[in-house]
């Protein structure tokens, strides 16, 4: 009855380097798991605490933020702010007893198509091992 668990991961992806890497992966015909769903944002610094929480609340098994490399933010401080916010939300997740590993921030250069795909696979694996989000499991009991 129970099908194979396929995690669903929402990726907030900065419109600069990380998106470029993702597009490059596409044009190089590299594959990454369909579990990763990408939302492009103007800057990773534009992703707020509420966005991360809402993604989880709406049933994402994992959330990742993809920003530019340290010091390489187009808007100078966006990726730094994202890093701090991710740390903050991880604390909040602790309060909710949701595994902190479900949330991660990655930094990309613009031509890292291979790394993008590799990380996409790794993230999917990590979340697959963690299992479905606790929100779903307990909810399905009702």
């Amino acid at each position: 009855m129970k099908g194979k668990f396929e995690p669903l991961i929402l990726a907030f992806c900065c419109n600069y380097c990380p998106s470029c890497s993702a597009d490059l992966a596409k044009s190089a015909k590299l594959q990454y798991p369909p579990n990763i769903r990408i939302i492009k944002v103007p800057c990773i610094g534009a992703v707020g605490i509420i966005h991360i929480l809402k993604a989880l609340e709406n049933g994402a098994d994992g959330v990742c933020l993809m920003g530019c490399l340290e010091g390489k933010c187009e808007y100078s401080t966006g990726n730094f702010r994202a890093m701090k916010r991710v740390q903050y939300v991880k604390k909040l997740l602790g309060k909710l007893s949701i595994e902190k590993e479900r949330l991660e921030l990655y930094n990309f250069a613009a031509a890292e198509a291979y790394r993008f795909c590799k990380l996409a696979r790794e993230v999917t694996e990590t979340v697959r091992t963690l299992g479905p989000t606790p929100l779903k499991i307990n909810n399905s009991k009702i």
Binding site: L53, L96, I98, P134, N138, I142
Partner: peptide
């Protein structure tokens, strides 16, 4: 309002987990 949204989301998730 920013904090209201965050706290509300937290409470909803917490309740959801508790079923």
């Amino acid at each position: 309002m920013r904090e209201v949204e965050i706290l509300a989301s937290m409470i909803r998730m917490d309740r959801k987990m508790a079923g």
